[in-house]
Amino acid sequence: MPKKVNILLVEDEAIIALLLKRNLERAGYNVYKPLATGEAAVEAVKTNDVDVALMDIRLAGEIDGVEAAEKIVSLCNTPIIFMTGYVDNDVRERAQALNPVAYLVKPVTPNDITPVIAGLFGEGEKEI
């Protein structure tokens, strides 16, 4: 039977995280409680079933979103979607090296994200 797609949302701005979570949930996805640091995100993928990680790059905590994504990919090979205000070439290069599903430049609206996830898994549910 179809199972809901599980999304890990890593975003340190609470309001942005809240809005994205609501919109993604309305679109039929399961979104874990948003996390504000890369470290927490790396821990979360170890214990949770994450289908796609939605990562901000500039985060609270010691490591940035790209570094966290590198660890997440090496642990679970989880698909990554970056969303960031950064358009620096070196940050972008580091991010692109991980072969992410998408690299969205902020301001990111729910309208930008849902089609990307839908393209990956279909509308909210995935076949197991």
């Binding site: 309001i15 942005i16 809240l18 994205l20 729910p110």
Partner: peptide, 13 residues
């Protein structure tokens, strides 16, 4: 720009 995104998110919420 980041702050503007927060404001935008607030309005959308």
């Amino acid at each position: 720009k980041n702050n503007m995104q927060v404001i935008m998110s607030m309005l959308m919420l």
